[in-house]
Design a binder for these strands. Structure first.
Lengths: 317, 317
DNA sequence: TCACTGGTTGGGCATTTGCTCATTCCGTAA
DNA sequence: TTACGGAATGAGCAAATGCCCAACCAGTGA
């Protein structure tokens, strides 16, 4: 095991060194191969590995004017604390990829605070992408808390295990939610609710200094349905009750008002209450999420938004 | 003028957008050209401009093991607060380029402190390169102070105008040293010394929360000579008196003890005193600077060092 | 008006890079 | 020992990139 670790680390070392020579030193892969005494292909593989393992971090140090204006307008129109608008990555672009670096910067700002912070996280693709973009910071006494379990009814863990990866990356103590996203029955949910660890996590979450959540849409490609947390019937029921969006397991209609169905009594997530002082940062982009984002903004379920250019235009247009 | 600014900014916008699409979006330059509706060549130029104008920032998020060990050993051996060792960029590599990102990270840590900081800067190529690597931060109430003027005897300003560029980049109030580096006579120097602004700057400098300085070598390619601040005779005189290095205009021998010649009475820089609590960070790399760095470390003229791998090895070897 | 300077543009081409594929290497199990 | 699966390796090639050049454009001063 120890050997394994050493081996891995020396391999990462090599990749990092290749990445350094390539990106900082501006050398060609041939030169790097020469410098490190390996073949050209190996140099190329090392560089590409350095990129894919996230050892190389690229950031754009310039606020594009158009995006700045959109941000200001979003803040004004929806009474937000903060808005971040990522430049469009084009038609085919992946919006989670676009928002991730901006969201990561917001998170880093929180992490940089000198006094211990409690930071709460939801789940979702956008959050997951954000994790990859966060740069490692010297850990202080912060705590990170999960707002929702990630065990699906079939017992499988969700792909987007935000909190574990985040905790691992930042070496921070973390408090996962020890409950299934959706219990079998309302009774079972109540049972979990009274568990001490769950209580403790909810208490932490309610006092979080910052909260990061994704905003899920409730049309037919709803993530919560696609990831098999709920069935098609349950989705239809929610849609019928007017649900247009979802934030950590709480459904809301186009005015941001809570939507209740028999299902909602079985959901094991912490419900964030609106109107908090501390930032509640929603991360969501894509035209298919428009209705959900509009609802969340109307109901002031979030007080900060990270989105992308086309989505911002659509929200304001 | 205003038009000019707008024009420039929209051009930068375009470059930033191209850089964003290329590096964050992972698109090819052809796709970018298509997306922005410009020719392929223009897209390529925009991307390359984004890089050269520093709009794109690349950083390696991995401490290479070998460098870490060197850092620890430097700290131990020379009783430093901090040491940073950049991986080598190879024989032909530019050492200022290598140290710059690391130095910038140290500076950023200071800048991130919540309470107002006073940060003092020397001059030199290493410091100059560092400026380019600093990412823009939301300005707080920090102040930046120059430890030395940058006017050569012939009236020309030095190339490496660290403090102006830094102030410009970070939008921080700055306090340049309003005096020539080297006055004609000791009397002239005393005159400048008594000027109120000079006094004020020195007072600030003496209370600086952090100080960044380059370490200049005193062999025949001494920067202070190459940049025409002193004549060959003066250089020879200093060498004869045992000077092996220079920090913001103060010369020292191989034990770090001050070296005085008639020249030194004419130098208009603030002399940093050793043994301070606040970090005094020396940035220097390259085998031709070895003697200078050794001297500075012996005399504890700095309490933190940023250097590169071969230099660190040589210092410890 | 005209020549000239400084900068921008797109075409063409050499270099660099990313990727696929067949091969080899290594550890494991039969 | 041999067969086998998975990872690493290097060759070769197509795509992508960077750079040079000739043409062009706008502003400037004679």
């Amino acid at each position: 095991m120890n050997r394994m670790t050493e081996f891995e680390s020396s391999r990462e070392d090599e990749a990092a060194r290749a990445g350094w020579l390539y990106y900082v030193g501006g050398m060609t892969q041939d030169q790097i191969a020469n410098e490190l005494g390996v073949s050209r292909q190996r140099a190329q593989r090392l560089v590409s590995r350095a990129v894919s393992e996230g050892l190389v971090r690229v950031r754009i140090e310039h606020k594009i004017g158009a995006c700045l204006e959109l941000e200001a307008e979003l803040v004004r129109r929806f009474g937000l604390q903060t808005a971040r608008v990522a430049p469009s990555l084009g038609e085919a672009g992946d919006s989670a990829r676009a928002t991730a670096p901006l969201a990561a910067t917001l998170l880093e700002r929180i992490l940089a605070r000198p006094d211990p912070q409690v930071i709460a996280f939801g789940t979702g693709r956008s959050l997951s992408a954000m994790v990859g973009e966060v740069m490692q910071r010297p850990a202080t006494e912060h705590k990170i808390v999960s707002l929702i379990g990630n065990i699906a009814p079939d017992g499988s863990a969700s792909f987007y295990d935000v909190i574990m990866r985040m905790a691992d990356k930042l070496r921070l103590p973390h408090y996962p939610m020890l409950a299934p996203v959706i219990s079998e029955t309302a009774e079972e949910r109540a049972l979990f609710d009274h568990l001490k660890p769950v209580q403790a996590v909810k208490k932490l979450a309610s006092a979080a200094d910052a909260t990061f959540v994704g905003i899920g849409q409730m049309n037919d490609d709803a993530p919560i349905y696609k990831d098999r947390f709920i069935s098609l019937e349950e989705l239809r029921e929610l849609q019928g009750a007017g649900a247009v969006g979802e934030i950590v397991g709480s459904f809301f209609n186009d005015e941001g008002q809570p939507v209740e169905t028999p299902l909602t009594a079985r959901i094991g997530s912490y419900r964030i209450e609106g109107g908090r002082e501390a930032p509640i940062i929603g991360i969501a982009a894509g035209t298919n999420k428009l209705a959900a984002i509009r609802g969340a903004l109307s109901g002031k379920l979030v007080n900060a938004l990270v989105t992308d250019e086309p989505t911002a235009r659509a929200l304001l247009g």
